[in-house]
């Protein structure tokens, strides 16, 4: 017998189920229990950067939007820095008024989700290649056995998107656009619309990260 490798094994994922709201966003389940709730608002009045809204739906393989999905986002600040000790980029500063994380559910009636945040900056990627501004998404719901990871990019960042090392990894060029959110400047705050298609025509690119 050779020596044993004593790594542990990752715990198996299970669906978040239809009642995920109770645990993660109890107000949407219909009751108030915690003094401090985690929400879909990432930026306060002191946060640096351009205010934006992200809105969209999560759509299943029959074209039906999910009314019970939970989404979390994780992003860099306006300088492209993540508020985390492992981000050792020299450029830019940590923003004490921006954690960079939020969560929300799709609405039980409209099926729309919404985040209020700021537009992130460029983040340094592997081997010196800058990544275009992007927001990391994680989606769970009843019927989703293991959380789905994807990224949202910004349609008004054409040059950065064209050079982005992750978008360029997507072999079928037509699928890259599934990660690019269009910008709507018709209201007081720009709105990026980002629908996530779980299956079928226009299926969003999901990552094994």
């Amino acid at each position: 017998m050779v020596q044993s490798l004593d790594y542990l094994k990752e715990t198996a994922s299970q669906t978040a189920g239809p009642y995920v709201h109770i645990g993660l966003i109890p107000n949407q389940a219909g009751f108030d229990i915690f003094e401090n709730n985690f929400t879909n608002v990432l930026a306060d009045e002191n946060t640096r950067g351009e205010r934006i809204i992200i809105e969209g739906r999560v759509i299943d393989g029959t074209g039906t939007p999910l009314r019970d999905a939970l989404l979390e986002i994780w992003q860099a600040n306006a300088d492209g820095r993540y508020n985390h000790e492992l981000d050792r980029q020299n450029s830019g500063k940590i923003d004490e008024d921006f954690r960079g994380w939020g969560r929300t559910g799709t609405d039980f009636d409209t099926a729309v989700y919404r985040f209020e945040t700021i537009k992130p900056g460029l983040v340094s990627g592997r081997n010196g290649k800058d990544m275009a501004p992007h927001i990391n998404f994680w989606i769970v719901a009843r019927g989703i056995n293991i959380g789905l990871n994807t990224r949202m990019y910004f349609a008004d960042e054409q040059d950065a998107n064209a050079a982005d090392p992750v978008l360029n990894l997507i072999e079928q060029k037509t699928r890259r656009k599934t990660l690019i959110a269009d910008r709507d400047d018709s209201g007081p705050i720009p709105v990026y619309r980002f629908d996530i298609i779980l299956q079928g025509d226009g299926e969003t690119v999901f990552f094994d990260i």
Partner: peptide, 11 residues
């Protein structure tokens, strides 16, 4: 109906 049909892209 809620599972992707395409492979996950390994990053």
């Amino acid at each position: 109906a809620r599972s992707p049909r395409q492979s996950l892209l390994s990053l």
